[in-house]
Write a protein that binds this DNA or RNA. Structure first.
Length: 802
DNA sequence: GATTAGGCTTCG
């Protein structure tokens, strides 16, 4: 929501009626502030601070009128575009109403003696309403007085002319410029015209029952009406009437602006617009509500306008509200969108096989998840729009077609083309019947519902099985007869803690079973990879699902030494203060050396100087030694006169014995101020976020070659490595003790030099899935899950399993 | 102050 400027004289009723005001004095941390507002005068307006590209923060203090108590003044922290809009539209002295905020602890209460809480405003729900008296009438002034640079601002107009008049759709005359309200009965999402603009086409109606076609040309997509469904209500300013094909049509003209509202009776009257601020008063609210109830009586809004995947009928056209999980270009005229809505289509859905390297987003999903995913092929003009979409986006796809038994599909494998009983989803080229795609905002009611449905499904594994296979190539061939060794008694060394109620099978049976499910086996460890434990520790990016080795110390030490050589003049950002500390000495006789450190002014003012330092010019060893004195050390360097982070091959953060790395592919590193207000513990997540770093996770990845009397197979231990060893990969990376624990476990499972007969038996839960190797060949992949190592009792022995 | 489109399925 933008900052809304409300004109005095229209009463206080312009603020949505479901919101109620709460006195500032009554605000506590525990207060339920949903649907609450606070009202006060802006007594201090801080500067607009740029945190990152297009991410702003602004602090302001508002004071409840008629109250002088300190605690009736409260700090308000505005984030993102709201901060930017506030900066432009609000002046000190203005009276504002805030809604959609959360309450936090004010970290500055001891300093400023204001209210012990602060209000945090970010996201789509946060909104600031500004009250301002209409300016005195001045006939020479232009019809719209603009505040700030936003071209579509229409804040205040002279008292007589500021009141917009709206022409009913039954009273339109040709050759005039008018303002209108209407209920949308048909619409097309903006599409590229043959000229310079995008074109939106819609038809609206009102109580006159006239249906009026409207055409909107704008070069910016955000200036087009934000229509999500039939029944939405639009308010358009400055459209001209034209006569075409025996009827009046409306086309936008200079100064055009449009605001759209949800058409559902009882829904919030929340304007959808890109305008920074706009006129909206009690009368507008009433007009919207009247149109809503009139439309409801006319049954203009089709019920269930979108169809869930579970209700899709073959051959039908339908609108789908869904979430994008992944996408892949097929060719220049076709893009694949992989979506779900949390419901399962009763028909077999088309499978489209694409190269994993062209897939954007997750490349493979669990079988359970795969069964819920619809593959949508979008063609021609929609490909351009599909390119803008990001996995995770919530979409509405209009006029999608479910085609049964389509046999000619790009990327389809031959075995599938003969399958007739499946549904393909096509978004054909063109815009007929409103065909198109729209990204819906996360706070829209339909998306809230979708999210609830989706939440019922467990998260999918983040690492796909292909990655596991890539790391060690193809699983080994069967290693022949091992029955002789299996006759010896052995110890039991692991137990399953899963809830699957299934009988154990032999490895040979397992290999013949269906993929995509779990199996229980009893087997011995024949060998494992990698033999050197530190090679099993990897860094994993949950965003791009890539895995990499941990850079070795020599490389990192080199990066530190290179960084320390660049010691030219350097300007730290204004939120840092610089100082010097003694470098730890290598040996008692060595010379004293000073290191430059930078501290956040905010943390200094809060006396939290030990919590985070930016350290310059130190060696890797010195940095390691300094971790005892500081909770967080971020190594920095001077580069071109500016302070920057080191190359991401080096840890970006030292935190005790733990080092943290960032993903080179997914990070956008920059030295930015950390917002530590109200943050009790500054940890790696907070620091990574502030620095634009996609934090890499430590993982342990091992391949176990297991065997029983019937066969051998290779199973990966990855996701459940912590369950298996009882220590987390992060601990292993930081502590010798944790590393030893894993050594001991492996030694007891696979004693060096010992015969197979001495090896304990493992009760394993294995997940079998299918994946593809580089050549596109299907490969089974087995993962050890829900299994914990249990130290076998040294004197007890178990009989061979049946 | 030009131009675009002017609903009306479907190659895949």
């Amino acid at each position: 929501m933008p900052v809304c400027v409300l004109l005095e004289g229209a009463g206080g009723a312009q603020i949505p009626t479901h919101l109620t005001r709460i006195p500032i004095l009554l605000i506590k941390n525990s207060t339920d502030v949903s649907n609450k507002t606070v009202k006060g005068k802006v007594v201090r307006k801080g500067p607009l601070v740029l945190l990152a590209a297009d991410n702003f923060i602004l602090k302001t203090v508002i004071q409840e009128e008629d109250s002088q108590a300190d605690a009736s003044s409260i700090n308000v922290v505005l984030m993102g575009t709201l901060a930017k809009d506030f900066n432009q539209a609000v002046n000190q002295g203005d009276v504002v109403v805030a809604s959609g905020f959360t309450v936090g602890k004010s970290p500055t209460v001891h300093k400023d003696k204001l209210h012990p809480c602060n209000l945090l405003m970010s996201g789509d729900n946060a909104c600031i309403y500004v009250f301002r008296l209409p300016p005195p009438r001045d006939p020479t002034s232009p019809p719209a007085v603009k505040r700030g640079p936003a071209p579509s601002t229409e804040v205040s107009r002279p008292p007589k002319t500021q009141k917009y008049t709206y022409v009913g759709l039954g009273d339109l005359k040709t050759g005039s410029v008018v303002n209108v309200y209407g209920v949308v009965v048909f619409f097309k999402q903006p599409f590229r015209s043959r000229g310079t603009d995008f074109c939106s086409s819609l038809k609206i109606t009102d109580q006159s029952n006239q249906k009026i076609g409207c055409t909107i040309f704008c070069d910016k997509l955000e200036d087009h009406p934000k229509i999500f469904k039939i029944g939405d209500i639009v308010r358009m300013h400055r459209v001209k009437t034209q006569f075409f094909n025996d009827s009046i049509t409306l086309v936008n003209t200079f100064g055009f602006s449009v605001v759209t509202f949800d058409g559902a009776v009882g829904a919030n009257v929340e304007p959808r617009t890109s305008s920074l601020s706009f006129h909206f008063d009690r009368e507008d609210c009433r007009t919207v509500e009247e149109l809503r109830s009139w439309a409801a009586r006319q049954a203009l809004i089709p019920s269930g306008s979108t169809t869930p995947l579970s209700a899709v009928q073959p051959k039908a056209y339908f609108d789908l509200t869904c979430q994008l999980l992944a996408k892949a270009p097929i060719d220049t005229t076709c893009t694949l969108l992989r979506v779900w809505d949390g419901t399962r289509c009763p028909h077999t859905l088309l499978k489209v096989i694409v190269e994993p390297n062209v897939m954007v987003g997750t490349t493979s999903f669990s079988i359970d998840r795969e069964n819920l995913i619809a593959n949508i092929l979008v063609y021609d003009n929609h490909v351009e729009f599909a390119q803008q979409l990001k996995p995770g986006d919530f979409l509405r796809i209009y006029n999608l077609r479910a085609i049964p038994g389509s046999s000619k599909v790009p990327g389809l494998t031959s075995c599938q083309s003969v399958e007739v009983d499946h549904l393909a989803f096509h978004l054909h080229g063109g815009t007929a019947f409103g065909r198109g795609i729209r990204v819906l905002p996360e706070n829209s009611p339909d998306i809230q519902e979708l999210k609830r449905t989706i939440k019922a499904f467990p998260e999918d594994d983040e690492l796909n099985d292909s990655t596991l296979l890539e790391i060690w190539g193809t699983p080994p061939e069967s290693l022949g007869d091992v029955t002789a060794e299996n006759s010896a008694d052995s110890l039991r060394a692991s137990e399953r803690n899963c809830t699957h109620d299934i009988e154990p099978v032999t490895l040979s049976e397992l290999k013949q079973s269906n993929l995509g499910r779990v199996h229980h086996v009893r087997a011995q460890l024949r060998s494992y990879k990698p033999s050197r434990l530190h090679q099993a520790l990897k860094l994993y990016c949950s965003k791009c699902t890539s895995m990499q080795d941990i850079p070795d110390d020599e490389l990192v030490a080199h990066l530190f030494s290179e960084a320390s050589k660049e010691s030219g003049p350097c300007i730290p950002p204004p939120w840092l203060l610089s100082g010097q500390i003694d470098a730890p000495k290598d040996n008692p006789g060595s010379l004293k050396r000073a290191l430059t450190v930078h501290l956040s002014t905010q943390l200094m003012s809060e006396n939290r100087t030990k919590e985070l330092i930016f350290l310059m010019g130190s060696t890797l060893e010195e940095t390691r030694q300094l971790v005892s004195g500081y909770q967080n050390i971020v190594p920095v360097r001077s580069s071109g006169g500016h302070l920057t982070l080191l190359d991401l091959s080096a840890p970006f953060l030292f935190r005790g014995r733990r080092k943290y790395y960032g993903c080179r592919r997914c990070s956008e590193p920059a030295l930015r101020e950390l917002c530590a207000e109200g943050v009790e513990l500054i940890d790696e997540t907070i620091i990574a976020k502030a620095l634009g770093i996609q934090l890499l996770q430590y993982v342990l990845l091992m391949a176990f070659e297991v065997q029983d009397a019937t066969d051998t197979l290779e199973a990966f231990l990855w996701r459940d490595a912590k369950t298996f060893f009882g220590v987390s990969p992060e601990e292993v990376a930081a502590s010798q003790e944790a590393e030893n624990c894993i050594h001991q476990t492996m030694d007891s499972l696979c004693p060096p030099g010992g015969s197979t007969g001495e090896r304990p038996w493992l009760d394993l839960c294995l997940m079998a899935s299918r994946t593809e190797d580089d050549g596109g060949q299907k490969q089974p992949c087995y993962q050890i899950c829900h299994t914990a190592f249990t130290k076998p009792p040294s004197t007890h022995s178990d009989p061979e399993p049946a």
